[in-house]
Nucleic acid binder design. Structure first.
Length: 493
RNA sequence: GGCAUUGUGGCCGAGUGGCUAGGCAGAGCUCUGCAAAAGCUUGUACAGCGGUUCGAAUCCGCUCGAUGCCUCCA
């Protein structure tokens, strides 16, 4: 018996614009593809939010007992600066600017990407394929689309014929656009453009002689178009039709629209059952952009080396902050908001630690099973993590009251509570308890225990000068003493 | 300019046509040698203007603002 048989999940499908009952193609199995980063610079914090949302989704699916194949690609070629003929490959451009081999650029920023994600406690995807590793598959797809007459070759490049495709299929259904409107709204493009229509997009681009990143193809040396890799890799690893395709909201158009077109042109049917889009992250209410300086890198948050925030924030605090918003809402990052989240996060962690030493009784003063189901209900409602967190704080309240003997819990309920708290906080939200790792040092906690004892002796003798000194000195070292009914405890602040 | 999304109390952020999540901050109280921690109590907010309705923050229209896409972008 798997959890997913009892927990009925609804997901918001961007394609239909509605929350739908989630039903995988094959019971118990889920195929999920998420558009990964183009590794031409340090990973963007907003990018992290998107991947974090899908990490949480991945985690919840696994928790429910699904066998998930999660594919998240690395774009290491083909992502053009723009769609005009002069468009340069982002990685090639960076390589030129920094005088590096393109694959050095790819390696450098892939490593950065993985390092940051690890700090955020991401689970690795099942497969992390690269565009350059799937050139052959991409060429095969182009051949098929050409054979079906939905693409055309010109001067060694191949373009997808959007207008022709639109006669039998519906281009724009994901982003709610109509081709006619798009055509009428198009600005005049440069005259030298090879494309028949501005809406057409490149499947294959001819490499100019100086272009380093090039592969042989039936149309001459070149490189694949950006949208194509996702179709190639998702089809290869998840099949012609799979359950979930995710990515950032900004990829909806044109990237995902083009993916749908390619897959439908190639395979004759829709590639994806549920499209999911994570929303944007803003900084101080404005779009993050390097050009305006309204930008912050993940490691600048962790180290505190930035002009925007008052202090450093741990990856888990940032993760908690992001999980306090629904993945589908715009989230605004600010110092004030992070500060509030960090405090809330510490409160949650303290309660988690207190859970281990709670007294049990013959009756429970609150309904643990009902509470647990409420947590699942929140997650089942399109992964509503803010609601889940609200319920976790409800548990915090009960935990603290039980600790103060103002409420009670049975041993059995306590086990259920512990298990559920662990599942939701660590397995599903993917948070980490910093205190727990610090406490692994038994000697340190013994030493603090000794200081607590000395302080309490001093207090018993009314030597408050000494007791306060111990307390204050520890405080400055980041160790907070907490006097409770049953003695003194401590935590790392 | 076009298309889309969105606008909730000091800050962040859920949400349902009628019974007002949650976190942080603030205030009061309990506890404490004093604090801190913890607990309890306290806030009737929903951009503006109209409309539908017995009743709307929740539905519709307009206005204003923000964000995204429209050229690369999670």
């Amino acid at each position: 018996m798997h959890l997913y048989q009892n927990q009925h999940l609804k997901v918001y499908n961007s394609l239909s614009g509605k929350k739908e009952d989630f039903k995988p193609l094959n019971e118990g199995h889920i195929g999920m593809y998420v558009c990964g980063p183009t590794v031409y610079s340090n990973v963007h914090l907003g990018n992290c939010r998107t991947f974090m949302s899908f990490d949480m989704i991945f985690r919840y699916f696994k928790h429910l007992g699904y066998k998930v194949r999660y594919v998240r690609n690395i774009t290491d070629a083909g992502h053009l600066e723009n769609d005009a003929e002069t468009g340069e490959d982002k990685i090639a451009k960076k390589a030129r600017l920094e005088q590096l081999e393109p694959m050095e650029v790819v390696q450098r920023y892939t490593l950065d990407f993985h390092t940051i994600l690890e700090k955020f406690n991401f689970l690795p995807p099942s497969i992390e394929p690269t565009a350059t590793g799937h050139i052959i598959e991409q060429i095969e797809i182009i051949k098929t689309i050409l054979n079906k007459g939905l693409a055309y070759e010109i001067n060694g490049s191949v373009y997808f014929d959007v207008e022709k495709f639109n006669k039998t299929n519906e281009y724009g259904k994901l982003s709610g656009r109509k081709l006619e409107d798009m055509i009428s709204n198009t600005r005049e493009l440069a005259a030298q453009d090879e494309k028949r229509n501005p809406q057409d997009f490149a499947l294959w681009k001819k490499a100019e002689p100086q272009h380093i990143m090039r592969w042989p193809s039936p149309w001459g040396d070149g490189f694949p178009g950006w949208h194509l890799e996702c179709t190639a890799m998702s089809t290869k690893y998840l099949g012609e039709t799979f359950d979930i395709h995710g990515g950032g909201m900004d990829l909806k158009f044109p990237h995902h629209e083009c993916e749908i077109a390619q897959a439908e042109a190639c395979n004759g049917h829709a590639p994806v059952n549920y499209w999911m889009h994570a929303n944007m992250l803003t900084l101080n209410g404005k779009k993050m952009a390097k050009s305006t300086g309204n930008n912050i890198l993940p490691h600048e948050i962790f180290t505190g080396e930035n002009e925007i925030l008052s202090k450093a924030y741990s990856p888990s605090a940032v993760r908690f902050f992001m999980m306090q918003a629904h993945y589908n809402s715009i989230l605004d990052l600010s110092d004030e908001a992070l500060l509030a989240s960090e405090k809330g996060f510490h409160k949650l962690m303290e309660a988690w630690e207190n859970l281990a030493k709670l007294p049990t009784a013959t009756v429970s003063s609150f309904d643990v099973a009902a509470w647990k189901q409420k947590c699942y209900d929140a997650m089942n409602d399109d992964f509503n993590t803010p609601i889940l967190i609200a319920h976790l704080f409800e548990a915090v309240k009960h935990i603290n009251l039980i600790k103060e003997s103002k409420e009670s819990i049975t041993e059995k309920d306590l086990e259920v509570l512990k298990g559920a708290m662990h599942d939701f906080i660590f397995d599903i939200l993917g948070l980490e308890n910093k205190n727990a790792t610090a406490l692994d040092s038994d000697k340190l906690s013994d030493v603090i225990g000794l200081l607590i004892q000395l302080r309490n002796d001093a207090r018993a003798n009314k030597d408050f000068a000494t007791s306060d000194k111990i307390r204050e000195q520890l405080e400055t070292m980041g160790i907070q003493l907490k006097d409770g009914k049953d003695g003194t405890t401590f935590s790392f602040s």
